[in-house]
């Protein structure tokens, strides 16, 4: 096969934001890859750099942010070398994205159908009639009730769950090779979240798109991902297949994260906590960034940053314990 199995590969990516207060090291040396058809979960808490990672891949960082180092290879091409125009042909076409707040991502003054038709006409050069037909197909695919009539609705006329279905339809419109879903169900109620996760699983089988699923919810990751990358303060701290990660988390941060999550049907007197808080990324501490909150801290941890250490079974962990 001529096509390589690896669809996306990040090498030493550093994304910094240059603000009035100083340089924020939001993503500070990130390596990972996504194979075709794979679902990779990225987990971490606020400010760990998971969303900045996705924005870096799509080059949507705004004025203050910049990828200052590294390579983002997509299907053999470095996305960082592309012109803005070439990039525009990739966004929404070969790589598309679903965001957390579906209602704010739709243009409020255009009908839902028009917004999907626009993407189809620009990227796939379909005629108005073809695009119209394809939009109805897509809205049916994502389970929107009464798609022909719904196409004529404005975003404010549909519920959050329906808006997320529309966003997914739009994201899938051009059969993307990679779908980045950034907290796709966080703003939704649990019963609606269950519908959307179910839909994403079903579509993954049908269209074989690779998915990067960004979330803070360990439950969502456990259910959806094949492999998981855990991020902390701009760095990947652990990488593992999903079963291995939940069975035996290796990094103290991952262990703390799992132990501090209340689990339905498993009541404990006291939840484990991770003391302290995430360090500022304006001046990240030397050595391991988790050291100040870690129960296993050694002298070495504050002096030298641990590399990603390879463990058995396709696992990587950034910790001096191993």
């Amino acid at each position: 096969m001529a096509q390589s199995d690896v669809l996306l590969k990040l090498k030493g990516v550093k994304t910094y934001f240059f603000t009035d207060e100083g340089t924020v090291h939001a993503v500070d040396g990130l390596d990972f890859q996504v194979r075709r058809g794979e679902t990779l979960g990225i987990v971490g808490e606020s400010g760990c750099g998971k969303s900045v990672t996705s924005m870096s891949i799509l080059r949507l960082l705004g004025k203050t942010g910049k990828v200052i180092e590294g390579e983002i290879m997509f299907d053999g091409e470095n996305l960082l070398d592309l012109s803005e125009e070439e990039m525009r042909k990739i966004r929404g076409n070969r790589i598309s994205m679903i965001f957390q707040q579906p209602t704010t991502c739709l243009n409020p003054v255009f009908r839902i159908g028009e917004q999907i038709i626009e993407a189809l006409q620009i990227h796939q050069g379909l005629s108005g009639e073809e695009a119209n037909k394809r939009t109805i197909e897509l809205l049916t695919l994502v389970g929107l009730p009464d798609p022909v009539r719904r196409m004529r609705s404005f975003p404010h006329e549909i519920s959050g769950g329906q808006a997320q279905r529309v966003m997914i339809a739009m994201a899938l419109a051009c059969n993307p090779e990679l779908l980045i879903a950034d907290e796709p169900t966080t703003a939704l109620d649990v019963t609606i979240q269950a519908q959307i996760l179910d839909l994403m699983r079903e579509l993954r089988e049908k269209v074989n798109t690779a998915i990067i699923l960004i979330t803070h919810d360990l439950g969502v990751v456990a259910e959806m991902a094949e492999n998981v990358m855990v991020m902390y303060a701009g760095k990947a701290v652990e990488y593992a297949p999903v079963h291995a990660l939940f069975e035996a988390p290796k990094h103290p941060y991952t262990q703390g994260l799992i132990a501090s999550t209340p689990v339905l049907g498993n009541v404990r007197d006291e939840l484990e906590t991770i003391p302290g808080q995430v360090p500022s990324l304006l001046n990240p501490p030397a050595g391991c960034r988790f050291a100040s909150r870690c129960a296993h801290k050694m002298d070495q941890c504050t002096q030298e940053e641990p590399p990603l250490i390879k463990l058995e079974g396709d696992r990587l962990v950034r910790c001096w314990l191993y």
């Binding site: 009730p145 019963t191 979240q193 269950a194 519908q195 996760l197 439950g219 456990a222 999903v242 939940f246």
Partner: peptide, 22 residues
């Protein structure tokens, strides 16, 4: 509601009740 909650344990396979509509 209970069956809809994703559990942080990939080994559990549940029969999920998916409610339709909003």
């Amino acid at each position: 509601l209970m069956s809809a909650i994703p559990l942080p344990d990939p080994t559990i396979k549940r029969d999920r009740i998916i409610l339709e509509g909003d």
